[in-house]
């Protein structure tokens, strides 16, 4: 019961952040609303009893990705000006596409047969995660490191072109 109320509150917070991203006039304020959304998603992870993911969400998304976005925005446009037009020229088409996507997601959400597990989430998730990463999923784990390496080198090459 209390978790239901908490979930509704956190979901509203996330949605408010998302709406703020779209409606804000200045790009920096959009980035701030995006951070609000990230914090909301972290709260949802907590409610799903995945505290490790919640911490990772805050650490990586709010601490790293949001900072990256803000730096990138500051590099590419005149940060101090506030004139972003409210509607761009493609708002009609975009609105129709968004409505179609929304109806589709609603249909999937309500009609599909989601399997519900009756097992309780394990108590010690972090240790289980570590064992899984080193045991069953070691290949994706090593591939992930190669992936990160490629991202790092590629981004440095692209960003340094003068």
């Amino acid at each position: 019961m209390i978790t239901q109320i908490a979930f509704i509150g956190i979901a509203l917070l996330t949605l408010a952040g998302a709406i703020g991203v779209v409606l804000a006039r200045s790009v920096f304020v959009s980035a701030l609303f995006l951070i609000l959304s990230f914090v909301g998603v972290s709260g949802i992870y907590v409610l799903l009893e995945a505290p490790f993911l919640a911490g990772v969400q805050l650490l990586v998304y709010v601490g790293a990705v949001a900072v990256l976005i803000i730096f990138a925005v500051m590099l590419t446009r005149d940060m101090m000006s506030e004139e972003t037009p409210f509607l761009n020229r493609q708002w009609g088409c975009g609105g129709v596409m968004a409505a179609v996507l929304f109806v589709l997601l609603l249909l999937i959400g309500f009609i599909a047969d989601w399997p519900v597990s009756s097992a309780k989430p394990p108590e010690d998730t972090i240790s289980a995660l570590g064992e899984a990463l080193m045991g069953k999923y070691v290949l994706p784990f090593e591939v992930a490191s190669v992936f990160l390496l490629v991202a790092l080198i590629g981004a440095i090459v692209v960003a340094r072109e003068r």
Binding site: L32, V56, L58, L59, V62, G63, V67
Partner: peptide
């Protein structure tokens, strides 16, 4: 660590 990284905002 997560809380410390939020201080940048």
């Amino acid at each position: 660590a997560a809380v410390a990284s939020t201080s940048v905002i």
